[in-house]
Design a protein around this nucleic acid. Structure first.
Lengths: 196, 196
DNA sequence: TTGAAATGCGACCGCTCGTTCGCTATAATA
DNA sequence: TATTATAGCGAACGAGCGGTCGCATTTCAA
């Protein structure tokens, strides 16, 4: 039950921090949402700040495992249409997975206050995506599917607009389907422009 | 002196809210930074929340004046090179103007908590820019400078990556010059791809 | 010049915050 | 079974919060 409680606290913390921010979250609400007494929390963390630090540690590890390791790199598509499908799949997961959504919100809110949140935000929102697609596009150029060009520039050109639309989904979940349609329209525009 | 104090309070509020968020800001620090007693603030605003609402009102008006009105629409460039120059100028201003930077940070931090901040964030980060460049690109197509295409899609393709780089500057000011170089590289890539 | 409105101030109020304490109940160890 | 950590609880603490009050000072119209 002990380890379990600790993890439940971290889950609730991610939920509340991502909605109200670190400063806007209080221990009473957090523990109450778990049916736990305020003071019981201190059996697992020595302070509110330690919750924050532990949570961020976990998110950093989680990110590196999921997006940083080469074995999780999506396979290089064999056709332009496959690139569109792969993209839609990726964006769908990233927009629907509650933990990933909350992580982005948390990083968005806290990026100006915490250095580690800032660094992870840049990875999540920019460099992680571009590095991933730089490899994919280099592979597609090898296969003759994409016009020969700087793969890093093309990756930036491709991922940045998608990143903007993902942020839109986080901000206005009502517009998710609309945004997804725009992701697909953009992806098709991209293959029309750069595809061979 | 009265009106002046009220505006100074709003300026300080923008500064502190954009750094620490609404919940992370307290009246004592805010007024102290102006050399003002805590209680004196209540001569000008009836609560902390009223400061927030007034500030947001002001930012909304400011945005509509500055970016919403047709007379502030930049002239349609007469050459592709002019588009690059105009873009660099625009981004430079938006990244260097302290008030605009703080406004973006504030909207970034508070977009999930306040509906009006959320709406203004979408304008600032997405629709405002694309609408502006939709008109510009339509004009450039008229002049035969850009390949005929959906101007709204091209505007999105052009402004979204720039928006991402502006966010990067807000998050990591150290990388501003690096980001500006990337804006220019991207802009040139764009005119090479879509220019006539 | 006078009187009222506007502005500033420090003291103070009630409340909520993060955190601590002493106690009980449970689970693991021997 | 006796012992000892472990995990839970409500009460309470000191600090800091947003906000109020009464009073002094300035502003300015009459």
């Amino acid at each position: 039950m002990a380890k379990d409680t600790k993890e439940r606290i971290l889950t609730a913390a991610l939920e509340m921090f991502s909605q109200n921010g670190y400063a806007g979250t209080n221990i009473r609400e957090l523990t109450a949402s778990l049916g736990l007494g305020k003071s019981s929390m201190y059996r697992h963390f020595e302070s509110k700040e330690e919750i924050w630090n532990t949570l961020l540690d976990e998110l950093i590890v989680y990110y590196d495992r999921r997006f940083g390791s080469p074995e999780h790199l999506p396979p290089v598509p064999d056709s332009l249409e496959e690139l569109v499908a792969m993209t839609m799949n990726l964006v769908n997961v990233t927009v629907r997975d509650e933990k990933i959504v909350m992580t982005r919100k948390l990083l968005t809110i806290e990026q100006f206050r915490d250095d580690r949140a800032r660094d992870l935000a840049t990875k999540h929102f920019l460099t992680g995506l571009t590095e991933m697609f730089t490899k994919i596009f280099a592979g597609m150029m090898e296969k003759g599917l994409l016009r020969r060009d700087d793969p890093a520039m093309l990756a930036f050109v491709y991922t940045a607009p998608i990143s903007v639309l993902i942020h839109l989904c986080d901000r206005e979940p009502d517009k998710t389907s609309e945004a997804m349609a725009q992701v697909e329209a953009f992806s098709r525009h991209f293959i029309n422009t750069y595809g061979v």
